[in-house]
């Protein structure tokens, strides 16, 4: 029997089934904006907002939507929340809005969000859907912050723009350039694979 509130829905996606490191979803914004911790935080918050909004709405309307039009309906719902997030960030901080650039409206096609709407929210009650959205969103935010901290610290010698290694540090430039994003995430997934493998033995 399905419980009304199941906190597993919240805990699981944060680490064990992390949307990024386990399911390999939502990679584009993850790589594109993770050059700076501040932008990543903005992206993470935007994704959490859209996820919660769309999971909630999809869960509310799931009983009225005929299955053959559900995908377009979900996409419209997601696009609505993305546009709200887009304009709110522009009103709140034009600088972050400019840095996120085209990647902000592109949250619409972030597979995590449609994936959660289709796989979870369309089959579960409202409370569980919100928990799942929060968990998934936080899992994504942790992943993007982790990558951003590594990239900004190594590549620019700063975190949130504050120097962390002192003045003598020569930045490892490649880290904040595009190739660095691929390398960091490659190594992080390798570490996670190693940890999972050891536990199995």
């Amino acid at each position: 029997m399905k419980k009304l509130i199941d906190f597993k829905n919240f805990i699981n996606p944060i680490w064990r089934e992390n949307p990024v490191f386990y399911l390999m979803l939502g990679l584009c914004p993850l790589l594109a904006v993770s050059g700076s911790v501040r932008d990543s935080l903005g992206m993470g918050i935007a994704v959490i907002f859209v996820l919660v909004g769309s999971n909630f709405t999809v869960s509310v309307i799931r009983k009225f939507v005929p299955s053959h039009v559900r995908i377009p309906v979900f996409i419209v719902v997601i696009a609505t929340f993305v546009t709200i997030a887009d304009y709110s960030i522009a009103a709140f901080s034009p600088e972050i809005h400019r840095n996120l650039g085209v990647y902000l409206p592109l949250i619409v096609v972030n597979c995590i969000i449609l994936g959660r709407a289709e796989a979870f929210a369309s089959k579960n009650n409202i409370l569980n859907s919100i928990l799942d959205a929060l968990g998934t969103g936080i899992g994504f935010t942790i992943a993007i912050l982790l990558i951003a901290i590594i990239r900004e610290a190594l590549g620019n010698g700063t975190i949130f723009g504050n120097p962390v290694f002192g003045t003598g540090y020569t930045p490892f430039l490649i880290m904040i350039m595009p190739p660095g994003a691929f390398l960091v995430i490659g190594f992080l997934i390798a570490i996670k694979q190693g940890m999972t493998r050891r536990r199995k033995c």
Partner: peptide, 13 residues
Amino acid sequence: GGIIVLFLITGIS
């Protein structure tokens, strides 16, 4: 039915 639902949702959005 599908068309009406889609239309409604888009309108609300």
